[in-house]
Deep mutational scan, measured.
Amino acid sequence: KQVQVGDEKYTFDTPEEARKFAEKVAKEKNLKVTEKNGNFHVE
C-alpha cells in the first residue's frame, strides 16, 4: 500500500501501517487523509 504526501510516495506492507503513517503525517502537517483505490493520500 502506498501513502502519497505531496510528490513523495511511501510504500508499506499492510494497509494498517500505511494508514497509521498517513494519519501521523496529516496530524503533523495539519492536513487530511483521503483513501483512493486502497492507497492513502495526505493533502
Rank of each mutant, 00 (worst) to 15 (best):
K1G: 13
K1H: 15
K1L: 13
K1Q: 08
K1V: 15
Q2N: 10
Q2L: 13
V3C: 04
V3G: 01
V3H: 01
V3S: 01
Q4G: 03
Q4Y: 15
Q4P: 01
Q4V: 15
Q4C: 15
V5T: 03
V5A: 03
V5Q: 02
V5Y: 10
G6W: 06
G6M: 07
G6L: 09
G6K: 04
G6I: 05
G6C: 12
G6Y: 07
D7Y: 11
D7W: 11
D7K: 12
D7Q: 13
E8S: 11
E8C: 15
E8V: 14
K9L: 15
K9M: 14
K9H: 12
K9A: 09
K9F: 14
K9D: 04
K9I: 15
Y10T: 02
Y10F: 12
Y10N: 01
T11H: 11
T11E: 09
T11N: 09
T11F: 14
F12Q: 00
F12D: 00
F12E: 00
F12V: 00
F12N: 00
F12W: 01
D13H: 08
D13A: 13
D13P: 10
D13R: 10
T14D: 11
T14Q: 05
T14K: 05
T14N: 09
P15I: 14
P15F: 13
P15D: 10
P15H: 13
E16G: 07
E16W: 09
E16S: 08
E16D: 11
E17N: 06
E17P: 00
E17S: 06
A18T: 01
A18I: 00
A18E: 00
A18M: 01
R19I: 05
R19N: 02
R19V: 04
K20A: 14
K20F: 09
K20L: 13
K20S: 12
K20T: 10
F21M: 01
F21R: 00
F21P: 00
F21I: 00
F21N: 00
F21L: 01
A22W: 05
A22K: 02
A22V: 03
A22P: 00
A22E: 00
E23A: 08
K24N: 08
K24D: 08
K24W: 12
K24I: 07
V25A: 06
V25S: 04
V25M: 11
V25Q: 06
V25G: 00
A26T: 02
A26C: 06
A26Y: 04
A26G: 05
K27Y: 11
K27I: 10
K27C: 12
E28M: 09
E28S: 08
E28I: 09
E28A: 10
E28P: 05
E28N: 07
E28D: 11
K29P: 04
K29I: 05
K29V: 05
K29F: 14
K29N: 13
K29M: 14
K29A: 10
K29L: 15
K29Q: 13
N30R: 08
N30W: 06
N30D: 08
N30A: 07
N30P: 02
L31Y: 09
L31K: 05
L31T: 07
L31M: 15
L31A: 11
L31N: 04
K32S: 11
K32I: 14
K32R: 11
V33F: 10
V33Y: 07
V33R: 03
V33P: 03
V33E: 03
V33M: 07
V33I: 11
V33K: 02
V33G: 02
V33D: 03
T34W: 11
T34I: 14
T34K: 08
T34S: 09
T34A: 06
E35F: 14
E35A: 06
E35I: 15
K36L: 12
K36W: 11
K36N: 09
K36H: 12
K36I: 14
N37C: 13
N37I: 02
N37M: 06
N37H: 07
G38I: 01
G38H: 03
G38M: 04
G38W: 01
G38N: 05
G38F: 04
G38C: 07
N39A: 13
N39W: 14
F40R: 02
F40S: 02
F40L: 12
F40W: 12
F40M: 05
F40C: 05
F40A: 04
H41F: 15
H41R: 10
H41T: 12
H41Y: 15
H41D: 06
H41Q: 10
H41M: 11
H41G: 05
V42H: 03
V42C: 06
V42S: 03
V42G: 03
V42L: 13
E43R: 09
E43T: 12
E43G: 14
